[in-house]
């Protein structure tokens, strides 16, 4: 049996009348507004293989609220300004978690991971250094005896305090620390591109790919830059008509995909043929191509 959701059947769930969604460890749902992407994420939230789900949206993104009856589903609306904030230390015996759903408490969480299991801390730091090669290690700043803020130390000896850390670094840390807190089976991310400079999107996607090695990540996106970072079998097109409701089409099953993908990167292909309504140009060719 697969340790992640590889196929999910839907029936009469929101705008989805009936359909099967095939998933990979890292998977993106793309499609027009109001096509049913967020509903699909909500639907996945209830099928977390018993290990809980975490619903994450980025700065400015709307959260997909967990429905009643999903006690294992938690919500985070990450905001770099909150991730940078100092926060009170987490005491022995206290459960590990952010102090609010915007991400306050990142420094205190790192501090607590260090205090409780230094190996976990070192593993986290090693993972971080692999993605950000100029970084020599974490540097937790202390505003006062009961407060921690995150920071990093570079190989040249300089230190980068929280207020100057890139959003990519902060988002990575926020995601990467999740498995050390309360492990979940599934992370659902609504529009990871929100609030990010376009040049940072690839970085965040690298982070999500890394996390997907241990925890399945399913995201909904409107950004071709996000899609550019994915493999063809990791993308499903979500469309919706009055008659059929929401339907799922793996992007590799759209017409002429092989030839199109020789000329376009994946996100470019989508953008070039998308119309933002029914994505009809993506599905048809007039000729025999």
């Amino acid at each position: 049996m697969s340790d992640y959701l590889s196929s999910v059947n839907f029936e009469n769930f929101g705008p989805i009348k009936k359909g099967t969604l095939k998933l990979t460890r890292l998977h993106a749902l793309i499609g027009p507004n109001d096509s049913g992407k967020s509903w699909t994420l909500r639907g996945l939230g209830g099928r977390d293989l018993g290990r809980g789900a975490l619903v994450v949206s980025m700065q400015g993104g709307l959260p997909i609220a967990p429905r009643n009856g999903w006690p294992r589903t938690r919500t985070l609306r990450l905001d770099p300004d909150f991730l940078r904030k100092g926060s009170r230390l987490i005491g022995e015996g206290e459960s590990l978690g952010f102090q609010d759903e915007r991400g306050t408490g990142l420094g205190a969480l790192l501090d607590a991971v260090f205090a409780r299991n230094v190996r976990d801390y070192l593993a986290l730091e090693a993972e971080f250094k692999q993605l950000f090669p100029t970084v020599d290690g974490f540097r937790l700043h202390t505003d006062d005896s009961s407060n921690r803020r995150v920071g990093v130390r570079l190989f040249d000896g300089s230190e980068v305090p929280a207020e100057f850390m890139s959003e990519g670094m902060l988002y990575f840390l926020a995601f990467a620390i999740l498995p050390y807190l309360s492990p979940v089976g599934l992370i659902l991310v609504e529009e990871p591109e929100n609030g990010l400079h376009p040049s940072r999107i690839a970085e965040v996607m690298r982070v999500l790919r890394k996390i997907s090695e241990t925890t399945q990540v399913v995201l909904a996106t409107h950004s071709p830059l996000v899609v550019n970072e994915l493999k063809p079998d990791e993308v499903t097109l979500v469309t919706r008509t009055k008659e059929a409701g929401t339907t799922f089409t793996p992007i590799v099953e759209t017409p002429n995909f092989k030839k199109r993908s020789e000329a376009y990167a994946l996100g470019e292909l989508w953008l070039n043929y998308a119309d933002g309504i029914a994505e009809a140009p993506l599905f048809k060719t007039n000729g025999a191509a």
């Binding site: 002429n256 030839k259 199109r260 020789e262 000329a263 376009y264 990167a265 470019e268 953008l271 070039n272 060719t285 007039n286 000729g287 025999a288 191509a289």
Partner: peptide, 29 residues
């Protein structure tokens, strides 16, 4: 012609020509 980043396997000019060929074929030319 919509121009995006050049892929590793082709220059921007080559990708533009490739895209034209696909578009022409798909339109039934």
């Amino acid at each position: 012609i919509r121009k995006y980043r050049a892929g590793g396997h082709a220059t921007a000019e080559q990708r533009a020509l490739h895209q034209l060929a696909i578009d022409a074929a798909e339109q039934g030319a």
